[in-house]
Amino acid sequence: MNEITNPDTAAPHEPATESAIPAEELDRLTDDIIGALKSVYDPEIPVDIYELGLIYKIDIDDDRNVTVDMTLTAPGCPVAGEMPIWVESAVGAVAGVGDVKVSMVFDPPWDPSRMSDEAKVALDFY
């Protein structure tokens, strides 16, 4: 598995040591997947879900299947049933991506400290 984490919101990780995916292609997939995630917005907050820190983990396996662990700003979010579908659709549209699985996780719970600096500026958290 090749794990992608948001450097603004995630703890450092050990990168995969070997991958069947050439490094250049993996870099392109990573950039394109992050770009796709940045096209998905929480309808109540004018910041994309990646910058909000709602994406906890992205794994790309050697067959280019993608698994995304994400959360919501609150467990009772009115789009809880829809947002994973939006994420699956956005990531699935990336050229070269195989199957996409989105898992909703609530541990650790989301809090504003997970937001990127860009999101904090956009929401006037400074």
Results as ranks from 00 to 15, higher is better:
Met1Glu: 07
Met1Tyr: 04
Asn2Gly: 00
Glu3Ile: 13
Glu3Val: 13
Ile4Asn: 07
Ile4Tyr: 05
Ile4Met: 04
Thr5Pro: 00
Asn6Lys: 10
Asn6Arg: 12
Asp8Leu: 00
Ala10Lys: 12
Ala10Phe: 09
Ala10Met: 12
Pro12Gln: 14
Pro12Ile: 05
His13Ala: 13
Pro15Glu: 14
Thr17Glu: 15
Thr17Phe: 11
Thr17Met: 13
Ser19Lys: 09
Ala20Pro: 02
Ala20Phe: 00
Ile21Phe: 10
Pro22Ser: 07
Glu24Ser: 11
Glu25Thr: 14
Glu25Val: 10
Arg28Met: 10
Thr30Asp: 04
Asp32Gly: 06
Ile33Cys: 01
Ile33Leu: 03
Ile34Leu: 09
Gly35Val: 00
Gly35Asp: 15
Leu37Thr: 09
Ser39Asn: 13
Val40Met: 04
Asp42Gln: 12
Asp42Arg: 08
Asp42Asn: 11
Pro43Leu: 08
Pro43Ala: 11
Pro43Asn: 06
Pro43Gln: 09
Pro43Asp: 09
Ile45Leu: 11
Asp48His: 14
Ile49Thr: 11
Ile49Gln: 11
Ile49Trp: 12
Glu51Asp: 15
Gly53Ala: 08
Ile55Trp: 03
Lys57Ser: 15
Lys57Asp: 15
Ile58Asn: 03
Ile58Ser: 05
Asp59Pro: 00
Asp62Val: 00
Asp63Cys: 01
Arg64Tyr: 02
Asn65Gly: 05
Asn65Ser: 09
Val66Tyr: 01
Thr67Ala: 12
Val68Met: 02
Val68Cys: 02
Asp69Ser: 09
Asp69Thr: 02
Asp69Ile: 01
Asp69Asn: 13
Thr71Trp: 10
Thr73Ala: 11
Ala74Thr: 15
Ala74Arg: 13
Pro75Phe: 05
Gly76Ala: 14
Gly76Ile: 01
Cys77Trp: 09
Cys77Met: 10
Pro78His: 07
Pro78Glu: 07
Ala80Ser: 14
Pro84Asn: 07
Glu88Val: 01
Glu88Met: 06
Ala90His: 08
Ala90Pro: 08
Val91Phe: 02
Val91Thr: 06
Ala93Trp: 03
Ala93Asn: 15
Gly96Leu: 06
Gly96Phe: 06
Gly96Ser: 12
Gly96Tyr: 08
Gly96Asn: 06
Gly98Val: 06
Asp99Tyr: 04
Asp99Val: 00
Val100Ser: 04
Val100Gly: 04
Val100Phe: 01
Val102Met: 05
Val102Trp: 07
Ser103Gly: 10
Asp107Val: 10
Pro108Ala: 06
Pro108Cys: 04
Pro109Asp: 11
Ser113Lys: 13
Ser113Ile: 04
Arg114Asn: 10
Arg114Gly: 00
Met115Asp: 12
Met115Cys: 08
Ser116His: 02
Ser116Ala: 08
Asp117Thr: 10
Glu118Tyr: 15
Lys120Ala: 07
Lys120Ser: 10
Leu123Asn: 04
Leu123Phe: 08
Asp124Leu: 11
Asp124His: 14
Phe125Leu: 15
Tyr126Gly: 13
